[in-house]
Amino acid sequence: MSEVILENVTKNYGNVQGISNISVEIKPGLTGILGPNGAGKSTMMKMVLGLSRPSIGHVSVMGNDPFTNWKQRNKIGFVPEYDCFYEHMSGLDYVAYFLQMHNYTLQEANEMARVSLAELGLEDAMDRKIRTYSRGMRQKTKVARAAVFNPDIFVLDEPFQGADPTTRHLLMMKMKQWADEGKTIMISSHILHDIENLTDQIILINNGKMLASGNRHEIRNLMNNIPRQIHVTPIKNTNLRKLAKRLLDESWVRATRIDKENDELIIETDSAETFYLELPRIIKKEKIEVKRINSEDDSLDSLYTKLVGGAQWK
């Protein structure tokens, strides 16, 4: 049974369209919502949370309209993209405060909050004021607040933003655990890598429109065929020309260009995956030491361009 259903949902903010005619059913398990900033991910989530209502269409969460049915909000845990703290509170007070909104006594709330924060590795910091927290700690506190009352549905808006690799790993483990417990998890991100390790179910949106939804492998295959620029910076700039020449022998490299100002080589490839597999072998063989490999994550944008421009999506 689908816990969250959006039927022909359009949301307008004055003359600006937030999302346009989106229909989707979200079933228990993890569903990734992918799109660049401003794509409409947060708008979609706000409607599921009952913070906003559609201009056209209908949103149903557990069979009810989330905007009017505030009582069922004890079944939905929300991690917002933005900071939303009472900075003067400690992490423990903050989580316990919102638990009391769920009608728990102060004692129950404190005990539950302590366990939830400790599970996320904040046992030493939970009594400190939130204003002293790092971004990663803030992120964990938001997740602790959302998860502490054991909701059936999680709405996680960019939950990995600002999280260090350890926090990211910990949060991913938590999300997998919730999915295994049969909970419905909506997770938004503008980075495909964040999502693809978590789930097969992906919804792609851009400019408020749903471009694709379904299995991640199909979407990933589309991405691999899109030209992508990768910047490689050797330790010695004298190796730039040598590496450029060598890479042009490979079929998966479309073009190379030397950026003398930044001492880097810009490589355009049709297959990013092959590039990342093959490059270490090549530089080892050619004895070229590299200090940085950098790719602006424009792959989603490229995919959207293709999806929107491609005949099959017109």
Binding site: L49, W70, R73, P80, Y82, C84, F85, Y86, M101, H102
Partner: peptide, 15 residues
């Protein structure tokens, strides 16, 4: 402004 009210609105507390 601090958006804390949005979090409150996602809890089962009436307006």
């Amino acid at each position: 402004n601090r958006k804390t009210i949005q979090i409150l609105r996602t809890t089962p507390i009436s307006p």
